[in-house]
Design a protein around this nucleic acid. Structure first.
Lengths: 141, 141
DNA sequence: TTGCGTGCAAAGGTTTTGCATGGCA
DNA sequence: TGCCATGCAAAACCTTTGCACGCAA
């Protein structure tokens, strides 16, 4: 049976924060600060984040440089000509891989290889985070 | 100036362990156990692992399910699975876009987006240097 | 009134650092 | 002999869990 959920300010704040900042990834630290002046209520933040992940409202990634989790809103509309797309060969999901590095790489291809890539037409095939996690879990059981 | 390194058993063990097991990822836990009966010398293992990463002998990834780092040997031979390919939509030529930035971008997709791109299957569409030059000349005439 | 949400503190796990000792060259 | 490598313990770090209290419905 489905669990009841209450509408609380904490929950609302996190949700609207992501909706307002759909194109960037945030650490838990940043999220804590953003939704609250001081960094209180860490545990609640973690709880809401995992809730939102399960509901597929946001996605969890791992930042190697900062060695911690980062979260990003699962965006709605965007201009698909200026970023790459990753298609998961397992589940078929298409991910928008738009970010600074994406643009940088396109620039590099043009400058160093003379190749003017058309992001809108190019699809990168691979395995998405979710399917990799599932696969890993299977292998370890 | 380059720092001296001594040939020690610990260093040799880790190196040969990876060379013997090139096609799988290992957690630090597994590595500790593999190179030594008991799990001693954890800090040394970590130190060697980061050394090997810097030397690009192994690569560090993050296992979402186990929530820890995993390491894998970087294979020797360069085949078409580890660089992108650009197909020119004008002349049809396929270019091998293998370079440091290419690898870096693939790494970025994995680390920051959780997307494990399969370069061998992914084709970037665009216009190659030759065709761009031709087109430019036409437009200017 | 019920039971979920919250925040604090404590615990959990992985990784890093400090330091004295041991070993290579 | 000089310096690097090692291992232990402690610290740092991110994240989860337990628990009592607060608050939505």
């Amino acid at each position: 049976m489905e669990k009841k959920t209450y509408k609380t300010t904490g929950r609302a704040r996190i949700g609207s924060f992501f909706a307002k900042n759909p194109d960037r990834q945030f650490t838990t630290e940043e999220i804590c600060r953003a939704i609250n002046g001081s960094d209180v209520g860490r545990s609640s933040v973690y709880r809401h984040l995992s809730e939102l992940c399960e509901a597929d409202v946001i996605r969890k990634f791992h930042s190697a440089s900062r060695n911690c989790s980062v979260y990003q809103y699962v965006g709605a509309a965007c201009d698909c000509r200026d970023h790459f797309h990753g298609k998961c060969i397992v589940c078929g999901t298409i991910e928008h891989l738009g970010c600074h590095d994406s643009a940088h790489f396109a620039g590099h291809l043009l400058e160093e290889h003379g190749f003017a890539v058309d992001c809108g037409r190019s699809i990168l095939y691979g395995v998405c985070a979710r399917c990799r996690a599932l696969k890993e879990r299977e292998e370890n059981d």
